[in-house]
Design a protein around this nucleic acid. Sequence first.
RNA 1: GUGGGUGUAGCUCAAUGGCAGAGCAUCUGAUUGUGGUUCAGAGGGUUGUGGGUUCGAGCCCCAUCAUCCACCCCA
Length: 442
Amino acid sequence: MSQITPRVPKGMRDFPPSVMLKREYVFDVIREVFHLYGFEPIQTPVMELNETLMGKYGEDAENLIYSAKHGRSSKDEISLRYDLTVPLSRFVAMYENDLNFPFKRYHIAPVFRGERPQRGRYREFYQCDADIVGIGSMAADAEVVSLAVTALRRLGFKQFEVKINHRKLLTAIGKYSGVPDEQLPDLYRSVDKFDKIGAAGVQKELEERGIAADVVTRMMELITSQKPGLENLDFLESVFGDMPEAGNSINELRDLAKNLMVAGVPQEFYAIDFTMVRGLGYYTGPIFETIITEPNLGSIMGGGRYDELIGLFRRESLPTTGISLGIERIIDLMDELDLYPAHIGGTVVDVFVTVFDEDTREDSLRVASTLREAGINTELYMEDKKLGKQFNLADKKGIPIVAVLGPDEITRGVVTLRRLKDGKELSVEQALMAKTVRELLS
RNA sequence: GUGGGUGUAGCUCAAUGGCAGAGCAUCUGAUUGUGGUUCAGAGGGUUGUGGGUUCGAGCCCCAUCAUCCACCCCA
C-alpha cells in the first residue's frame, strides 16, 4: 500500500499538548467571565440545514460556506456553520417555550469559512459568543460591552479600545448628507476602511463609486467630528437630531455610555467612533468592535444588536444583542505579547515518579497511586532505564518535581522529592508526601 | 476570487550553473542513585512535486502543490 503524505486541509490546524494547554487557559478565563456575568452555555450541531444558513450573511459570505454531503447522498442540503449567531437565532425560535427570557447564553465552538488563510485568519476557528435575547434596552448592550472589556482585561490586555457606533445613526448620516439608499452599503464598506486608508482614501473611494463629491464631503465632516467623550453626540444632535431615526440612535448611544459609566467600566477602554462599521448585514442598532493594529491582526472582538434576525425563524422577532471574541487572534496576540501566566504551557504533571529497578517497580506504583489519591497530577515512569535518563525526561517535559524511590528509601519507608528548578531535595515519609509536594510547588 | 514573496536535515538557515553544508534538536558514550553544563561520536536528504534548458540544475525556464504577505472580505 502506498504511503500518504500526512497533511490537514488548508486553513485548518492540529494543536499539540503545549499549544492546547495555552488555548484551554484562554477558554477557561473567558468562560469564567461569561459565568461572572450570568451567561450559560449551549451547544448546537456543527452543521445546519442550508435553509437555516442561506440568506443571512450576504452573497459574498455565502460563497465561503462549506457544504457537507455524505457518501450515499446525492442531495446537498446541509452545511458547516459560518458563525454562532444564526444557529442561536434558530435555537431560540425552536425552544422559546422552554427558555427563560431574557435568555443569556454563551457558546464557545468552531465555525468554518472557506476564505484564503492568512495570519489570524483560518478556515476553521473558534468563536466565543455571548448574547442576550429578549431585551431591547441599552441595559443589555452595556452588559455585553462590559463583559468584553472584563474578558480582555482578565486575559492581560492593557491597551485596547472597544469602538462603539450605531447602525441606524450611520444610515441617518448617509441619508442626511444625500447618499442614495442603494449606495448605503458602499458607504459602509468604504467607511469601514477608514483606519486603513484614512479620510482622504475614503473620500476618493466613495467618489469613484459615483457618490457626488459634495455629498461625500458633508458625510465625512459628520463622521470625523472627533471630540472628547460624548460631545460627538451633542454635535450630531445639533446638526440633525430632529430626524427621528437619528435622534433615537443618539439617545441610545448616550444611554449605553451612561450604563457603562455607572457599571464602572474605565473610559479608556471604550469610545464612540462613527468611522467604525461592521460588515455583517443583520445589525440594526449599536455595533461594537475592538481592533488591534500593533501587530496588525484586525478585529479581536465584534458584535452588536440584531433585532430582526430571529424574526427569520419566527413570526415575531426578539430584540437581541451580543458580542463575539475572536479567540484565534487573541491567542496569536497573547503569544506575541507573552501574556500567559508562568505555569501555563509546559505540562499538567506535578510529580514524576521514577522507577529504580524491576524489584522496586511496585513500590513506585503504590507511591504514584497515593499521590493521585491526594489529587496530585502524577506521571509514573514505565520503561527500564537509568535514573539519569528519567530525570532528563522529567526535566524536558517541564515537570517540577521528581520522586526517587530506591532500595534505600524503601527500607527507611520514605520518598525523596527533588525540585528540579533549584535542586532542593527532601526525604519524607510516604504519609507526608502529598503535603510536601504541595509545599514544594507553591 | 486578485496580485506578490518563499519552499534545502526534525527546526532555523547556508551553498558563482560544477563533491549538499552549518548551528540547534535527536540518539549513543564519558556517568550502574540524581537532569540542565562540558567533551567525544552517530544517525538523519529523491533540495515540495512534475516537466524543460544544459556536458552538468538546489540555483535558470514552465507547470503544479504548499506556505506566508497584501487586496476582497472578515474573528
